[in-house]
């Protein structure tokens, strides 16, 4: 089964806006805004994000995969989810 990148991105964006920025104003979150450097997501927040994507996209995130390059922006995270889904189609 293939996952549409756009819908993954939209789901992630909505979650970040609602849970971390408390807004539904899309312009507050550019696709490549750095979650970590801009203080949008802190160390506890990253783990909330991990739980969210595990449950939403039905994937299992390994501790070693919780890396800045996978979790630092909407684009990167969507790309990571996409890769996981493709490597482990269920």
């Amino acid at each position: 089964m293939s996952v549409q990148t756009t819908s993954v991105e939209a789901t992630i964006r909505r979650y970040i806006l609602e849970s971390f920025l408390f807004t539904d104003d899309e312009s507050q979150l550019p696709d490549d805004a750095s979650f970590l450097e801009e203080g949008i997501v802190d160390s506890t927040g990253v783990l909330e994000l991990v739980m969210f994507i595990e449950e939403t996209f039905d994937i299992s995130v390994e501790d070693e995969e919780i890396l800045p390059e996978n979790f630092d922006s909407v684009t990167q995270l969507a790309r990571y989810v996409h890769r996981k889904k493709e490597s482990d189609p269920t």
């Binding site: 802190d42 506890t44 783990l47 991990v50």
Partner: peptide, 18 residues
């Protein structure tokens, strides 16, 4: 603490950032 952070292992790369 939210349940999401009740048990986790961090890695050097993420830890550097935090």
């Amino acid at each position: 603490a939210p349940l999401s952070s009740a048990l986790f292992r961090t890695n050097p790369s993420m830890l550097r950032t935090f």
